[in-house]
Design a protein around this nucleic acid. Structure first.
Lengths: 231, 231
DNA sequence: ATAAACAGTTTACGGTGTTTACTTTTGTTT
DNA sequence: AAACAAAAGTAAACACCGTAAACTGTTTAT
């Protein structure tokens, strides 16, 4: 077990500072507008120096995406922990509300994860998939808990055979300790709530519904009710 | 009433060609990656010549967005017309399927409309709102028709007072000849289906559900059922 | 002490949007 | 047909961008 050398520590610090500055630039300028030269200038360095820390611009963005995924998952886990004494249903509700809350508080990070970050850029799957799994498993885990108590009505009590096979394979691959139905309801809920959040972040929803937070909350409750989960 | 002069006609042609080339570049290269120089080169012009037709790059993109909105609305109207002899419920189903179909066939245009097209760029509201209204009114119009026949169950038979006031104002402003409840269900459906489409376009859904089209179709049916509309 | 690894700079290349000044083309008017 | 004004397009320049290569100094390990 080696002690971290002075240089290794400084290297870590510089790397983190680059990401921090990049994240800050993103927030004010927009997702894809970050410039290595601008980042370097703010750090009193020259642009090529950044290449000592990230292979290229895409690699830096990938690192930011991983951090964002991780932060989102942490936010969900924190919400779950904060309501550990509540009922599973209430805990699920709290986590779903935390999902949007994080997105609204970190819009550029959310767009980085789920939007189109860069022109020709696509984040490497082998690094994003585990990150997605971590956050997603918080939600489906709670759904699985809830399903111990309640039973969803039609059409959410059965799932198409093709989906069943697909989901069983994923559950086995990613090691979710949950039922297929919980996974199914999780995916459905994910897509429904995601639509609201994306439309809100891109400014399409607010002019229609006014109070986006209230609308989201109401829709979460509506969705849970259609699934037989009464909050 | 003046006839269009020869020069005005040629100007229109060139302007259209610029947009066409830009759209094609977008499809292969990505949404925000289009380059005025590349467009000009393909047209055997120099980049500054484009400034005779569009004030700058953002203006060109705005024009593309307007065209995309218009094309989407046309696709929905075409779907409605193609099923004019079917029942309102079947017509609604067809239009909702056409919504995703257009998005999948024109992914970059869809992202242009609903994604974050450019770093600091945001499309001017006064030009996007009317374009949104045209497409949206096709959907809510059909929902209104359907609601003449069926009555949705809870929780979709009532809407929060705040939303009622908001929607009534919008219905009056944009001249939708429909009921508040139809508007409400339209917004809910819009957000739900939008989530599926966005996740599919950005590549997050396919690895989870496999057959995205099948999943979308099933979810449209599920949603209609929860709203009391049996397809 | 000395060699290797590392962090950073300088320089350079090809690309971008955009502005300015100039030239060519086009259509109309005398 | 000649002259002219408007429009369309070009060339050069500016200020950026990502990134590759060569080079300089510092830190670490042997």
């Amino acid at each position: 077990m080696l002690e971290k050398t002075r240089r290794a520590q400084r290297r870590q610090d510089t790397s983190n500072e680059i990401k921090a500055v990049a994240r800050r630039h993103m927030q004010t300028q927009g997702a894809g507008a970050l410039s290595l030269r601008a980042i370097a200038a703010e750090m009193q360095m020259t642009a090529p120096a950044i290449y000592r820390y990230f292979q290229n611009r895409d690699a830096l963005i990938t690192a930011l995406i991983v951090d964002a995924f991780s932060a989102l998952a942490q936010a969900l886990e924190a919400a779950r922990a904060a309501h550990s004494s509540a009922s599973p249903v209430q805990r699920l509700l709290a986590v779903l509300l935390a999902y949007r809350a994080w997105a609204v508080e970190h819009p550029t990070d959310f767009q980085l994860i789920y939007g189109t970050p860069i022109p020709g850029y696509e984040a490497p799957r082998d690094v994003t998939v585990p990150a997605v799994v971590r956050g997603f498993s918080v939600i489906v885990g709670l759904i699985d808990e809830v399903l111990q108590i309640v039973q969803p009505p039609a059409p959410y009590n059965t799932l198409p055979p093709a989906l069943r096979a697909q989901f069983e394979a994923l559950i086995a691959r990613d090691g979710y300790p949950i039922s297929v139905l919980a996974f199914y309801l999780g995916v459905i809920g994910w897509t429904q709530l995601h639509g609201i959040i994306m439309l809100e972040l891109f400014g399409h929803l607010p002019p229609v519904v006014g109070d986006s937070e209230g609308f989201y909350h109401a829709q979460v409750v509506n969705m849970m009710r259609t699934m037989g989960i009464e909050p």
